[in-house]
């Protein structure tokens, strides 16, 4: 909806619009900076109202981050955490994407699997933790399993919905031009799937990051989870907030990266 109106506006006012676009672009960086500053200021003003053991100021967090980064401990832990996150995410993608495509393109499979999948999706993944402890223990395998469970259903639901919504007209058009199965798959279905596969990747990676820290806090505390637990045990709120801040930043970064690659790879499908 919005990009059609945007395109129409562009057509209408040609050069003026282009100039305005440039203005907005430069000022949006300014606004972005302003937003970050305003947020930090709010954070800081809240932190002055609370004791330091409860809620650290952005300065304390920054100081802690610089120290911890220089020491090398925090980055090392982060890398270790990312390892099991990636494995869980890749496994989930490998299983959920084909299954989602199958469910999305085959009506019989869809109606057979849908009730069960909806029901399983409805159970918060973290509630499976006791099971994962039973089946995988409390170490590496369990963490990978939780990451897997936490992103699997979100990816599956996204892919299924996307595959079901591939414009039937496109497929009919291809068929009427006599496209065979191969052309149909590589020429029509695959390109039509890229957008929602990208969405699935974006949602999946956010969930995977979420799962990564959840796993480290709920199973045996290691890496970042241990860092948080230790910080919490000595009431070091700056260290705790540092981890949260890093994770959020990491999440944002991954999300933007997926969006950016989407814009590069799929220029015909640019989201607003």
């Amino acid at each position: 909806m919005s990009h059609t109106s945007g395109a129409a506006a562009l057509e209408r006012s040609g050069d003026i619009a282009r100039m305005r676009m440039r203005d907005i672009f430069s000022s949006s960086w300014l606004l972005y900076l302003l937003s970050v500053c305003a947020g930090l200021l709010l954070w800081h003003s809240i932190s002055t109202q609370l004791p330091g053991v409860i809620f650290a100021s952005p300065f304390a967090v920054a100081e802690h981050l610089v120290g911890a980064m220089a020491e090398g401990d925090l980055p090392a832990r982060f890398l270790n955490s990312v390892r099991h996150m990636l494995l869980g995410l890749v496994l989930a993608l490998l299983v959920a994407v084909p299954l989602g495509m199958l469910m999305g393109r085959n009506e019989t499979v869809f109606h057979m699997c849908n009730p069960v999948m909806t029901a399983l999706f409805a159970v918060p993944s973290v509630a499976f933790v006791p099971f994962l402890i039973l089946w995988f223990g409390i170490f590496y395998e369990a963490r990978v399993a939780l990451v897997f469970v936490m992103c699997f259903f979100d990816i599956l639901i996204t892919v299924t919905a996307g595959a079901r919504n591939i414009e039937p007209r496109v497929i009919q058009a291809a068929r009427s031009f006599g496209a065979n199965r191969r052309i149909m798959f590589f020429g029509v279905l695959m390109p039509a799937s890229y957008p929602f596969l990208m969405t699935a990747l974006r949602i999946g990676s956010i969930r995977a990051i979420n799962g990564m820290i959840t796993a480290e806090l709920f199973f045996a505390a290691v890496n970042l989870g241990e860092y948080m637990e230790d910080a919490s045990a000595v009431f070091d709120s700056a260290a705790m907030l540092s981890v949260v801040f890093l994770l959020s930043l990491f999440g944002l970064l991954v999300q933007e990266l997926v969006k950016w690659s989407e814009a590069k790879l799929l220029p015909w499908h640019v989201r607003d």
């Binding site: 004791p51 053991v53 409860i54 045990a233 009431f235 070091d236």
Partner: peptide, 12 residues
């Protein structure tokens, strides 16, 4: 013990 630790960190 955790109370003592909290106080060491500046809690009241």
């Amino acid at each position: 013990i955790s109370t003592l630790r909290a106080v060491e960190a500046g809690a009241d």
